[in-house]
Design a binder for these strands. Structure first.
Lengths: 349, 349
DNA sequence: AAGGTAAATGACAACGCTGTCATATGCTGC
DNA sequence: GCAGCATATGACAGCGTTGTCATTTACCTT
């Protein structure tokens, strides 16, 4: 059942090299020949052997996904998207969880490349926004795609899939303002994440546009984690003049805020509105369900992988114009506001 | 920097075949020779090339993880555990998400094996408990390890990492009974999961032991999903004689029950106790925090991977007694009761 | 000390594919 | 109809390892 390139060549009546040309989309094959080969491939259900390809070729058929583990939902969605893209193109995915806090990421990267030839990498935050990591990737001559907050893409747009956090955060904040909120607290995510800065920026702009002064005491630090959401919300709610709404940098922190409110016997959304960001499945499983911004992680990752794969591929044979080849790949995503039950009108004073 | 087996052979002053023997732990190498080679390996930071190994050898250095996507936390924890085990032994992991509902799993398995030589598979529920999948894996001659609920391991203990759901569920139920609960509702997970049957069994036994009659109307179906938890809990709470406690088959359903209780203005745990199962990070982020049973998914998966790797490895060279080689691999896990805030004394009537 | 056996080592082909370079084939224009 | 050129195709080596089998070495035995 398992057929090799030899079988295909025999069946099509050509040399194995010609078969190789066809399956790699190389030029200089007559249409008639190409068809013969493709028919044989189809008939035999031929699939090239990855190990052999990786061993023989200069290009490789493996890309890597480098991720920290900020949030299981995020990672799984991304991974599944990338996996789909890989499968569609016959590539293999090397999964590399790493720790953004440790200093060894660069070494790990180098090891990865030396150990198994790797065609490209998909970098997720915070690695995608860490200059030393980006530099190392470039130095290693790897094709790469960074999944980043728009702010971090400047000058490197070709290698980025952007998420416009500012824009989305602007809409979220506007939503709150339109519901009469004037004092809106903001729970920051981890400092190292550009996304949280983008979200803060959108928050600021929305306030400014509405003519509301920025109150620094309403902006509290956090870590994109539940506990920091609890702490941050507590701090905000204990203020002399507490906010009537809290914008958390992600759903997990928003859930933390919900928890804090509950602790303090504050009704949501009657007394306080809380909004998150990401639309993780999680956000539908809290009480009340979270108003948030939908971030299509699966789709984002699929595009990132497709882009990396295109880069890697075009390095090989001469290819059609690179402008055309990226058709269907969205390079900038704007998470969309999703109004659920955790936000409502500001309480009347 | 990237050294090959040739470099090592040259440096050690032996043939490449001898180097191969050393790195594969084959017998018939004199200790002195072995040491020379190992020194050279260390000095050159030699790492065997996976593609070449997979291509040349009969054995392969790749294992696969087959999973459905029941729950992101579950998958990620498992995956990370397996990844650790693989890295430690220089194996590669092929990730294969699949859909247990579709009929194509077996075809996908076959394709996987034909396409890339695969040494073994780790099967997670529900695949690990689906007879047709197990049969196919056996037919393909793959080494495999099934992560299963103890009940599903009968006769195949050697290839199973067991989770004793009954035992854990027994403890959970006992905990509730000790707090005075007599009417305890049970939310089943998906029918195709043996784990939920195991949990139900433990629940039954605990009731029996306490001399409490089983009331079938207190056992309601579900899907291991949030929404089914909401529905199931609603149904239970609308009973003429509603339970004072609900045991949900997993944390996500327990969160659903929490949601339903909230909808119906029922206070947790004062009026109703709710317990889950799994101890996903999720269970610490609800209000109140869930009483549950801790299931060490990462550890379970690590053991599963280690076991598969041992099997695959021992197929090659003659190895030390198989009894000894599995040292350190736990083959049966009993999730431990974790009392948090969602359970308490039964309300006095 | 010679012969015999088992253990240790090495030479070489093979895995399935791609890269290089040589060769064959089909076209062009005259 | 034929040189001349571009295009299409194929022969062959080699990627880095393992498997097979032949050979060498060390160690008993008598």
């Amino acid at each position: 059942m398992k057929s090799t390139i030899n079988d295909v060549a025999a069946k099509a009546g050509v040399s194995i090299k010609t078969v190789s040309r066809v399956i790699n989309n190389e030029p200089s094959v007559r249409p008639a020949t190409r068809k013969k080969v493709m028919d044989a491939v189809a008939e035999l259900h031929y699939q090239p052997n990855l190990a052999a390809r990786n061993l023989a070729g200069t290009r490789s058929y493996t890309i890597a996904l480098i991720y920290d583990n900020p949030n299981a939902y995020y990672v799984i969605d991304m991974q599944n998207g990338i996996l789909e893209a890989c499968k569609a193109r016959g590539y293999e995915l090397l999964i590399h969880p790493s720790n953004s806090k440790s200093e060894t990421v660069n070494d790990e990267l180098r090891a990865l490349v030396e150990h198994s030839k790797v065609a490209g990498v998909v970098l997720t935050p915070p690695f995608s926004e860490t200059q030393s990591v980006i530099d190392e990737v470039k130095k290693l001559g790897l094709d790469y795609v960074r999944i980043v907050s728009s702010q971090a893409a400047q000058g490197d747009e070709d290698n980025c899939i952007q998420v416009d956090d500012s824009e989305a955060a602007f809409e979220i904040t506007k939503h709150l303002i339109e519901h009469g909120h004037r004092r809106i607290g903001f729970l920051c995510g981890g400092e190292e994440h550009v996304s949280t800065h983008g979200r803060l920026e959108g928050y600021r702009q929305a306030l400014q546009q509405a003519g509301i002064a920025i109150d620094q005491s309403l902006i509290v630090p956090g870590e994109y984690a539940f506990d920091s959401g609890v702490e941050g919300a507590k701090a905000l709610l204990q203020l002399d003049n507490p906010p009537t709404a809290i914008f958390a940098s992600n759903d997990e922190m928003a859930a933390g805020a919900l928890f804090a409110a509950r602790l303090m016997h504050i009704e949501i959304p009657e007394q306080l509105s809380i909004v998150g960001f990401e639309d993780s499945p999680f956000s539908r499983q809290t009480w009340p369900k979270l108003t948030t911004a939908h971030q299509p992680n699966n789709e984002i990752a699929k595009c990132a992988a497709a882009l990396v794969l295109n880069k890697a591929r075009s390095k090989g044979a001469a290819e059609s114009a690179s402008a055309a080849k990226d058709a269907g790949i969205t390079k900038k995503f704007v998470p969309e506001l999703l109004v659920r039950d955790s936000s409502g009108d500001a309480p009347s004073p």
